[in-house]
Amino acid sequence: MAAEKKLLVVLAATGSQGSAIVNHFLEHEPSYRIRGTTRNVDSAKAKALSNKGIEMVSAELTDINSLIAAFQGASAIYAYTDSAGCAQAKEAIEAWESGKEKSLPDAARALEVSQGKNIADAAAQIPTLERMIWSSTPDSKALAGGEYDNYEMASKAEVLRYMRSTPALKGKVNAVYLAVFTESFVRFPVVIGWTKPTATNKKYLVRIPWNPASSMPWINLAQDAGSWVGALLKTDGDVTVEAVGGEMSTEDVVETMRRKLGVEIEIQQISLDEYSNVEPTGLMRHVGQLMRWTADLGIGREDPGAIKAEQFAKTHPGVKRSNIKESFESIDWSSML
């Protein structure tokens, strides 16, 4: 008689991060069955996952009871929060506009921490839970001072501390610091201050507040992230790991864009003030600080408790590290034009 499969619950399974984990486990981890959470089980993406054999259930990170229901019977949980989504959420915008929070980044941080604590409190009520993987970040402000104060990094780090201080989760929580996703610039051109040609300037512009020559850590999210999660599920709890496929400078990424698009692109290194002045909420300042941290210090380089990617990959041969240059070459950059 075949052994019963363990249950892995993947939060926000229709998102880019969640779907990367789901697809890896479908292809490479047959000992698990998968339940995915989503806001709308009738969406096209949810139905597509259902057609692959994924059990899709409705859950909201602001509704702890829906999380408890979604986690029932779980052996493992992959959990993450959407920092950009928190900044766009009605609750955060209302908290900022009403004066409850002094800025939109502060409101987004409060919402993200609340969501993360709901995940922890719900998971603590699941007696079958063996391991939870939290997609986290180092606490940039605590580790390196106010120069790198970023609401996303602060909120995820605070949630990790909360999870590991929850008695029912002791020894069960592993954290992964995912490097910058290789598809980030094409999905979010605003991150690199992407500016199209004008009547007076015939070049495309990249305007950034970090050193474009600095080597940055990257990961091919769709191809590789699931393998790191799979390895962490087999690792004793309370481990934090950097998940990095390789390094490449922004200059070299932009050179790839030039070749692929066949256009002239000029890089301008600007001040953080200039970078953040494109919108009034303060969010772009935090984006700039996050990218400066990554360019200056890597992902977990300043965190003495984080296992380096090379070290973890040596002891976990199943971890996949796609060639980063080839990953950038394979991207369809045409939407940037």
Rank of each mutant, 00 (worst) to 15 (best):
K45Y: 00
E97S: 14
H28E: 14
A144M: 06
A110V: 07
T37M: 09
F25Q: 07
Y78V: 13
T38M: 05
A123T: 12
G53W: 10
A124F: 10
A70I: 05
S16L: 12
I68M: 07
S135T: 11
I64M: 11
N40E: 06
T128A: 14
K90V: 12
E152M: 14
A107H: 01
S140D: 01
G85W: 06
K102W: 00
E101P: 04
A142H: 05
D149V: 05
N150H: 14
I54E: 01
A108R: 00
H28T: 13
T137S: 12
L61K: 03
K52I: 03
S66L: 09
R39V: 05
N40I: 03
L67I: 09
I77D: 08
K141C: 03
S103N: 05
T137Q: 09
K141D: 01
A110Y: 02
P105I: 00
K47R: 15
G145E: 09
S135V: 06
A144E: 03
F71Y: 13
R35T: 04
Y151V: 04
S136T: 14
S66D: 07
L61A: 10
R39Q: 13
N65Q: 15
A95L: 10
A79D: 09
S31Q: 13
A46T: 03
K52P: 04
A144C: 12
K90F: 11
I126K: 02
M153K: 04
L111D: 01
A70P: 04
A44F: 06
R35S: 01
T128S: 15
E91K: 13
A142F: 07
A69K: 09
Q115S: 00
I68E: 12
A92N: 12
A48I: 06
S50T: 13
R33N: 09
L26N: 01
K117T: 06
E55W: 05
S98D: 10
Y78E: 08
L111F: 08
W96M: 12
E97I: 12
T38E: 04
E94Y: 13
G85Q: 08
S103T: 15
I93D: 12
K52D: 06
I126S: 04
L143S: 08
A154E: 03
D42A: 07
